[in-house]
């Protein structure tokens, strides 16, 4: 982990590019996350629910974006982390996670940075937007 020391408003943190999400990843994330919803695993159930194919768990993208945060900051610096799920990530999707500093201020007796977060697919579809607050 290399915690950035010179954050300023507008600083873009290192993007995290994820390889195409395989069906195996969806299965393994089911076990690791405890989300056993079959629409992420079973093609027939996904189609019965009106989807062309299985799709990635939203929490998988949130976990990747969380990894971007924990790659840069010790976990005890994280104050809050929230996302809004904007679009489905299809199987084979290639998400890229990004974070930009939007403000730095004093709060709770410490210096905190607020980050704007986003996950987008290779075709530009934004699948997730969010924010996080970290203590510096």
């Amino acid at each position: 982990m290399s915690t950035p020391t010179d954050l300023a408003v507008g600083t873009e943190l290192a993007a995290l590019k994820i390889d195409p999400i395989s069906r195996t990843t969806l299965a393994l994330f089911t076990g690791a996350s405890g989300d056993t919803n079959p629409v992420h695993l079973d093609h027939e159930i996904a189609q019965a629910a009106g989807m062309p194919d299985v799709f990635a768990q939203g929490m998988l993208s949130m976990a990747y974006l969380g990894r971007l945060l924990t790659d840069l900051f010790p976990p005890d610096r994280l104050r809050s982390y929230g996302v809004r799920f904007a679009a489905i990530t299809p199987v084979k999707g290639e998400p890229t996670c990004t974070a930009t500093v939007t403000s730095i201020d004093e709060s709770g007796g410490e210096r905190r940075a607020t980050l704007a977060l986003s996950v987008a697919l290779a075709d530009g579809t934004v699948t997730l937007t969010g924010d996080a607050v970290v203590a510096l």
């Binding site: 629910a49 939203g58 929490m59 949130m62 994280l78 809050s80 982390y81 929230g82 799920f85």
Partner: peptide, 14 residues
């Protein structure tokens, strides 16, 4: 109907 549920937002405060 659970098969039609989407996860809209998620927030954690630590």
């Amino acid at each position: 109907e659970v098969n039609y549920v989407l996860h809209g937002e998620q927030r954690f405060t630590y």
